[in-house]
């Protein structure tokens, strides 16, 4: 027989208090998102209305957003960047972490520390050199220019190496005894066994690439190729166009929400594992 009672359970009142605090906090988190969608669904003349329920409902903001920008194209481009950037980082991180965890070579520790040390270099310090490099390569104003500099992620190497370090070494030995090369062992033994960690890290990387604003803004400059930049077109010196702005922002959030609903367990895992954000 098991019950849900906990040893040292505090009184009903304290439990209730805890729930009230948590309820208020979650409301504070959810409200801005609700307000975003509520505003996007108001009729154009009601955009500044403070009524909690957006009534009458109107899709005018969405129509305007689609008319002014190629929203689907922007979403597609952002998706391409998020997916390629995440996959690229996963691949680099996997290969580097495998080498660090499975092999012994001279200066291993130093090289690893240097690898991970790049994580400590702030983005602002590498931003300009990267920009100059992209400019010389002729990659400015291209999606490739946004993706390429993000491909090597120290965070990914760090996380995957920790996973691989706790990976049973006897499995690697068994694969060697069974005749697999190091390369084949990686793909037929390590990757399948590491799938949950890879999925979690992939989602984390994809979401941060999707939400990235500053670097695409530098590389793509005036174009509205990705959705986070597209939002700018509704902001002007004579005021912001709140309806379509909220509609586009709402659409930009949707894929992340959908991903979250479908892969909830993996994402929570990803953030817990990374110990970040």
């Amino acid at each position: 027989m098991t019950t849900d009672e906990v040893v040292g359970e505090s009184s009903r009142g304290r439990r209730l208090g805890g729930h009230v605090v948590l309820g208020v906090l979650s409301l504070a988190c959810v409200f801005p998102i609700y307000w975003l969608y509520a505003t996007s669904l108001r009729a154009p003349q009601d955009v500044y209305s403070l009524s909690v329920l957006p009534w009458p409902l109107s899709t005018a903001s969405y129509t305007e957003a689609f008319a002014k920008n190629d929203v689907l194209g922007m979403l597609f481009n952002t998706g391409v960047i998020a997916v390629l950037s995440a996959l690229g980082q996963l691949l680099v991180a996997l290969l580097a972490a495998y080498a660090f965890a499975a092999w012994r070579f001279p200066l291993q520790r130093l090289l690893y520390l240097m690898f991970v040390g790049t994580w400590l270099v702030p983005f602002q310090a590498t931003m300009l050199p990267n920009y100059v490099l992209l400019s010389r390569l002729g990659l400015l104003e291209t999606l490739a220019g946004v993706i390429v500099p993000t491909l090597c992620s120290a965070l990914g190497v760090l996380l995957l190496r920790e996973h691989l370090n706790s990976f049973p070494k006897e499995l690697l030995d068994a694969a060697r005894m069974d005749g697999r090369s190091s390369w084949s062992t990686l793909w037929t033994v390590v990757v399948p066994a590491l799938r949950p960690a890879l999925a979690a890290l992939g989602i984390l990387l994809a979401i941060s690439a999707w939400n990235e604003y500053f670097w695409p803004a530098m590389v793509l400059q005036r174009s509205n190729a990705v959705v986070q930049l597209g939002l700018r077109s509704f902001m002007g010196t004579e005021g912001n166009d709140w309806g379509p702005l909220m509609a586009t922002a709402g659409l930009a959030c949707l894929p992340v929400f959908v991903l979250y609903l479908v892969l909830q367990r993996h994402i929570v895992n990803a953030f817990v594992r990374s110990g970040l954000k």
Binding site: R176, R180, R195
Partner: peptide
């Protein structure tokens, strides 16, 4: 010779079974 070219098979203490297969 590398292990795969020696005609020997090994049984490990932890069994080392491939968990996904």
């Amino acid at each position: 010779l590398p292990p795969q070219r020696r005609d020997v098979a090994m049984v490990f203490q932890s069994y080392a079974l491939y968990p996904h297969l």
